[in-house]
Design a binder for these strands. Structure first.
Length: 648
DNA sequence: TACAATGACACA
DNA sequence: TACGTGTGTCATTGTA
C-alpha cells in the first residue's frame, strides 16, 4: 500500500500539521478519494502503525522534517523529487528541475518552473523554507490540488521506472540504457531498488539533521586551544597561530606584520626571491624545499586551515545544544554520493572526531567499509581472480600474494591506478600485471573508459546514469556540435554550469576545458576524450560503491528501528526529551553521521552490541541486494566507543 | 562595496 | 605521448 501526502503551508510558530492524504495501490492508482486530515500527524502515525505503507512525498528534504518535528517517523517512502532526478538522469537530462511542480508541468506540457534555490547559511536554521514545493509563482500551491499533482506524477514515475530499466541488475557498462521497447510487466528490480534506496536516503538525511551528531563543545575547544592557543576574539588570530605567522615571516626576512602566509601570491614571490623555483604554494611542493622557514610555513598553513574551516567560528555557527547537524544533499554528487551544504560535514578533519562524544549512558557504533572501491570493482566486473582476493579481509595483501610477489604497496598502487585511470609515475608495468592476471576486471574499467571517450554513458550497478558529455566536449572531440537531446542535459537546464554549487560534476572530466598553452586541436581533443574516459572509468566504481552504501544505510535504518521496537526503552541518564523530535531519538539507537563508506550510530550503551551486529547484517544484506551472489565480501571495521576518535 | 575566480586543502 | 576520481569551504585577489 502507498499513501500520498501533502501538507498545508506552515504558519510560523504553528506546530500543528494538517493536509491531505490519498490511499494508492502499489501501481499508484488511487483506491480511495482524497481525504482531509486536520491532524495530519495523528493520521500518519495511525496509518504507519496499522499498515506501514510507502508514503509518497513530494520531497523528503522539505516535508519529512515537518513530520519529524511533529514527532512522527515513517519507515518507507517514495520521494518524488529524488526519483525525478534519477529518471531525468537516465534520460540524459541532468540538472533539469526535479520538483513536483516541475515534474507535473513536464507531464502536462506546461512551462517548467525552476527549482527553488537551496537555503543559504543564514536561512539554514529557519524552520520552514520555501522547499521544493513552491510553484513557478513562488506561492505555495493549494494542498488539495497538490495532492492531485503528486498522485499523477507518482503514477507516471512508476511507469517510467518500469519502462526505463532492465529486468536484471546491470552486469556491464552499456552505451545506451536498455529502455526496453516491450514494457516490463513488473518494475525492474534494480531501478526500483535504487529509487527505494534513494528515498530512504532522504529519510536518513532528515533524521540525522533532526537528531544531530553529539558534539562536545569543550572537547572541541580543547583540540583548538591545544593546537592554536587560547581563543581570540574579533579578527585577531589565536596567539600561537599569530606567533607562528610572525616567525615564518622572520625566517624569510620580514619584519613583524609585513608577511601574510595566507597570501599564496606573497608566499610565491618570497620563495622565488629566495631562489626557489616553485610553481605553487601547495604543501607537497613546499616540502621539496630546503629552507629553515618552510617547516614553519607548512605548520602555519595546516593550523590556519583548521582555524578557518573548523575553528571557533564554525563551532558558533553550527553546534547548538551539544549537537552538530549536518545538512546532507542526497544524491548531490552525480555518482550518487551525498554532498553537504553550508557546514562541510563531509570534510571535517579527522582530528575533530575528538569532539564527537556519546551522551552519558550512550555509545557510538562506528563502522567503516574498508577497501570498498576495489571490492566493488571485483563484484561488478565478476572477475574471479579479483573476487578471490576480495573474499579476503585485506584485499591488497591477497592481491599482492597472488600477483605482486607479496608487495602490498605495489598491488594497491596498481589497483588504484586502474580505477582512477592513472598511467604516469612508472605504474605501467604494474597495470600490465593486472591486465594479465585480472583480465575481466581490467576489461571492465577499460570498457567504461572507452565508452566515455566516445561520448557514451555508463551506469552504476543499480542503474544510475552518468551525465552525457556537453556539447562543448562533443564539438571539441568529435568536431560535431551536440545534438538536441543531450544539449538540454548538461547545458542550459538551469542557467549555466557552475551556478549550482551542488552536483556540479563536470561530465567532460576535470580539465577538459583547460585552455592553457593553446595546444593544437588534435591534442586538446585527445586530452578531453581521455579526461572523460577517466571520469566514466571511475564512475562505474564510485557510483556502484555509492549504490551499496545507500542500500546499507537504508537497511541499517530499518534494522535499527526494529531493534528499538524489540528492546525495552532505555532512559537512564538521559535528559528528558525537550520536544517531540527529541523524543523520537531519546531512547532508540539511530544514525547520526554518514561519510561515503562510514556510519556512526548513537545508541544506548545497553544496545550497543546489538546495534553493532545490526550494522554488519545490514552490510551483508546490502551486498546481496546490490551485487547478488558474489564471493566478494565487504568487511566492516566496527568499533563501540565513547569518542569517535577512538574508533580505529 | 559586492561578487567571481583562484589556490589551497579537508574528506571519501 | 601523458593524463588519478569525486566533493565543499575558506582567504585572497581581481573585476564590476
Amino acid at each position: 500500500m502507498r499513501i500520498a501526502v501533502t501538507m498545508d503551508a506552515a504558519e510560523p510558530g504553528d506546530c500543528g500539521l494538517s493536509g491531505w492524504i490519498q490511499v494508492l495501490a502499489d501501481d499508484g492508482t488511487p483506491v480511495q478519494p482524497p481525504q482531509r486530515a486536520d491532524d495530519l500527524a495523528a493520521t500518519v502515525a495511525e496509518r504507519e502503525r496499522a499498515d506501514t505503507p510507502r508514503w509518497v512525498l513530494g520531497a523528503t528534504e522539505t516535508e519529512y522534517p515537518r513530520l519529524l518535528r511533529a514527532g512522527i517517523r515513517v519507515e518507507r517512502c517514495h520521494d518524488v523529487a529524488l526519483t525525478e532526478a534519477l529518471l531525468l538522469g537516465l534520460a540524459g537530462r541532468f540538472g533539469e528541475p526535479r520538483s513536483l511542480a516541475a515534474a507535473w508541468a513536464r507531464l502536462r506540457g506546461l512551462p517548467v518552473p525552476e527549482d527553488p534555490k537551496p537555503a543559504g547559511p543564514e536561512e539554514q536554521t529557519a524552520l520552514f523554507g520555501p522547499g521544493l514545493f513552491a510553484t513557478s509563482s513562488g506561492e505555495p500551491p493549494d494542498p488539495r490540488q497538490e495532492l492531485e499533482m503528486l498522485v499523477a506524477v507518482h503514477a507516471d514515475q512508476l511507469r517510467r521506472i518500469a519502462a526505463a530499466g532492465t529486468s536484471e541488475p546491470r552486469t556491464a557498462t552499456a552505451t545506451t540504457p536498455r529502455r526496453s521497447s516491450a514494457p516490463s510487466v513488473s518494475p525492474p528490480p534494480a531501478l526500483s531498488t535504487l529509487v527505494a534506496a534513494e528515498s530512504a536516503g532522504g529519510l536518513v538525511a532528515a533524521e540525522i539533521a533532526a537528531s544531530g551528531l553529539p558534539w562536545r563543545v569543550g572537547a572541541h575547544d580543547a583540540v583548538l586551544s591545544d593546537l592554536l592557543g587560547p581563543r581570540s576574539f574579533g579578527d585577531a588570530l589565536p596567539a600561537k597561530l599569530a606567533e607562528l605567522g610572525t616567525r615564518v615571516g622572520a625566517a624569510f626576512g620580514y619584519p613583524p606584520g609585513r608577511f601574510n602566509p595566507d597570501s599564496p601570491n606573497q608566499v610565491l614571490r618570497t620563495l622565488r626571491h629566495a631562489g626557489f623555483s616553485v610553481q605553487s604554494t601547495r604543501a607537497w611542493e613546499l616540502r621539496q624545499i630546503d629552507h629553515p622557514g618552510i617547516e614553519l610555513l607548512i605548520e602555519y598553513k595546516e593550523l590556519s586551515r583548521l582555524h578557518a574551516a573548523h575553528g571557533w567560528a564554525w563551532q558558533d555557527a553550527w553546534v547548538k545544544g551539544g549537537r552538530y547537524r549536518p545538512e546532507y544533499v542526497v544524491g548531490g554528487v552525480v555518482s550518487g554520493r551525498w554532498a553537504t551544504r553550508n557546514s562541510g560535514a563531509l570534510q571535517i578533519p579527522r582530528i575533530m572526531r575528538r569532539a564527537v562524544i556519546a551522551d552519558e549512558g550512550w555509545s557510538l557504533v562506528v563502522a567503516d567499509a574498508g577497501q570498498l572501491e576495489p571490492r566493488v570493482l571485483a563484484a561488478v566486473s565478476g572477475d574471479r581472480g579479483l573476487a578471490r582476493a576480495a573474499a579476503e579481509g585485506d584485499l591488497y595483501a591477497a592481491l599482492a600474494a597472488e600477483a605482486f610477489d607479496g608487495d602490498r604497496a605495489a598491488a594497491k598502487l596498481a589497483l588504484l591506478g586502474a580505477m582512477y585511470g592513472q598511467t604516469s609515475g612508472g605504474i605501467g608495468p604494474l597495470l600490465a600485471v593486472l591486465r594479465k592476471r585480472f583480465p575481466v576486471a581490467m576489461a571492465y574499467v577499460e570498457d567504461a573508459a572507452r565508452t566515455g571517450e566516445r561520448g557514451g554513458v555508463v551506469y552504476s550497478r543499480l542503474g544510475r546514469a552518468c551525465p552525457p558529455p556537453s556539447s562543448r566536449w562533443r564539438s571539441l572531440v568529435t568536431g560535431m556540435a551536440g545534438n538536441a537531446d543531450t544539449e538540454g542535459a548538461a547545458g542550459s537546464g538551469s542557467s549555466d554550469a557552475g551556478q549550482d554549487p551542488i552536483g556540479a560534476a563536470d561530465p567532460d572530466g576535470p580539465d577538459e576545458v583547460a585552455e592553457s598553452g593553446g595546444g593544437d586541436p588534435a591534442r586538446r581533443s585527445g586530452q578531453a576524450a581521455r579526461s572523460r574516459g577517466r571520469f566514466t572509468r571511475n564512475f562505474v566504481i564510485q557510483a556502484s560503491a555509492a549504490d551499496w552504501a545507500l542500500v546499507w544505510l537504508a537497511v541499517l535504518r530499518r534494522k535499527l528501528s526494529e531493534l528499538s521496537a524489540q528492546a525495552p526503552p532505555v532512559t537512564d541518564g538521559r535528559p528528558e526529551a525537550a520536544d517531540r523530535t527529541a523524543a523520537l531519538f531519546a531512547t532508540a539507537p539511530h544514525l547520526v553521521f554518514f561519510v561515503h563508506d562510514e556510519v556512526v550510530v548513537h545508541t544506548p550503551s545497553a544496545l550497543a552490541e546489538q546495534a553493532a551486529r545490526v550494522v554488519a547484517e545490514a552490510g551483508e544484506e546490502a551486498r546481496r541486494a546490490v551485487f547478488g551472489p558474489t564471493p566478494v565480501r565487504f568487511p566492516l571495521a566496527t568499533a563501540i566507543v565513547d569518542c569517535y576518535a577512538d574508533a580505529k
